[in-house]
Design a protein around this nucleic acid. Structure first.
Length: 378
DNA sequence: TTGCATGATTCTAT
DNA sequence: ATAGAATCATGCAA
């Protein structure tokens, strides 16, 4: 009989320890009775935990088996990894003893107590600042990536965000969608790289986490490792990986900013309106020269006719008013031209109307030339 | 290349 | 919020 088996047997022999072995409180209560025995057990535990890995191994499993309940807490360090694997390759002798240990009725209770002791000593020193509040930096990055359409919903999000960004940046997006196909393509590229990298990180993180968790779970059969401790280890791993993720997010944000400054901020790039649009605007302007301030509805109507935005209509009228006012003489010819045009159009409409009313009306197009003032008004 | 035309932006006043 | 004014930046013809 080796030390541990003896110890477990000894525990089993403690007075009244026959029920509720899974409940640490109950065990503690019962353990509290025989002071002498507790001292013995603790001494045995100390003896086991104090001895080196080699000693333990030599004493417990002289030839082949690994040490248990000793060594480092960190499964990622040194010999911890793989030692506890429950693979079928382990010698039969070891398997038997391990099985005996695992099945011992006192094991869960004892482990709970040991975990608690461990918790109160070693881990309380390490894990002081474990509850990390959501990092404001990473939240900022997340928000930005979402706003830029890099993270978040797949299709449409990107272009919508680009249009939104253009609107926010410029006040009057030049119909958002037209110029920025190149921008959107680049943004999609960034988005794709970001997602594939993120996926890689997430996969690596979950793989590593699983690996460590399996390791710890396996080791928890032979070492006092509480679920809380495993949780803590997992959160440490997640923290490490999230810092890597933050770097990824940061560099993605930078890339997006550079892209934006290169594409969207070149919004001053302009196209002249087409001839028809200019004509429509001028017609309205000169036919309302006494009050060239189109209402919101009129602007919308004009915008629709000219296939431009309402704010472009506003810009156009703003520019036109100020430039006309500054140099009426220069615009005189244009004013006359549009005055005639408007009059002819009106005449045509009127003629058509009267023709509809009385088809026999003669001289349908023969209206006198419009009389207009020097500023172009009829 | 240059100068003018023109759409967009920014600032200020109302 | 809107208009006026100044200015910027680009388009385009000469």
């Amino acid at each position: 009989m080796d030390d541990q088996t003896r110890m477990l047997a000894g525990l089993g022999g403690l007075g009244g320890l026959t029920q509720d072995v899974g409940d640490p409180d109950s065990v503690r209560k019962q353990l509290g009775q025989p002071q002498q025995d507790i001292g013995d057990i603790l001494q045995q535990i100390m003896a086991i935990t104090d001895e080196s890995l080699d000693e333990a191994q030599a004493r417990c499993w002289p030839e082949e088996a690994p040490a248990q309940w000793g060594g480092t807490d960190d499964p990622t360090e040194g010999g911890g990894a793989g030692r506890g694997t429950a693979g079928g390759a382990l010698p039969l002798n070891f398997q038997h003893r391990k099985h005996a240990l695992n099945c011992h009725r006192m094991k869960p209770a004892l482990f709970s107590v040991l975990c608690e002791i461990k918790e109160k000593t070693v881990l309380s020193i390490r894990g002081v600042q474990e509850e990390d509040p959501p990092d404001p930096q990473i939240m900022r990055l997340d928000n930005m990536l979402l706003a830029e359409g890099v993270s978040g919903p797949e299709k449409g999000g990107g272009s919508a965000a680009a249009a939104a960004a253009a609107a926010a940046a410029g006040g009057s997006p030049n119909d958002g969608s037209i110029e920025h196909s190149d921008y959107r393509a680049k943004l999609a590229q960034i988005r794709q790289i970001y997602h594939s990298e993120l996926e890689k990180y997430e996969q690596a993180c979950s793989e590593f986490t699983n690996h460590v968790m399996n390791l710890l779970r396996e080791q928890s059969r032979t070492r006092p490792i509480s679920p809380k401790e495993i949780e803590r280890m997992v959160s440490i791993i997640h923290r490490k990986f999230s810092s890597i993720q933050m770097q990824l997010k940061q560099s993605t944000c930078e890339a997006v900013m550079i892209l934006r400054s290169r594409f969207l901020d070149a919004r001053r790039k302009r196209r002249n309106f087409n001839k028809q649009a200019t004509e429509v605007l001028n017609e309205y302007f000169y036919s309302h020269l006494s009050n060239p301030y189109p209402s919101e509805e009129a602007k919308e109507e004009l915008a629709k006719k000219c296939a431009i935005t309402v704010s472009q209509v506003s810009n156009w009228f703003g520019n036109k008013r100020i430039r006309y006012k500054k140099n009426i003489g220069k615009f005189q010819e244009e004013a006359n031209l549009y005055a005639v045009k408007t009059a002819v159009d009106a005449a045509n409409v009127s003629a058509q109307a009267s023709q509809a009313n009385s088809p026999a009306t003669p001289n349908s197009g023969g209206y006198p030339a419009p009389c207009y003032t020097p500023d172009g008004r009829l």
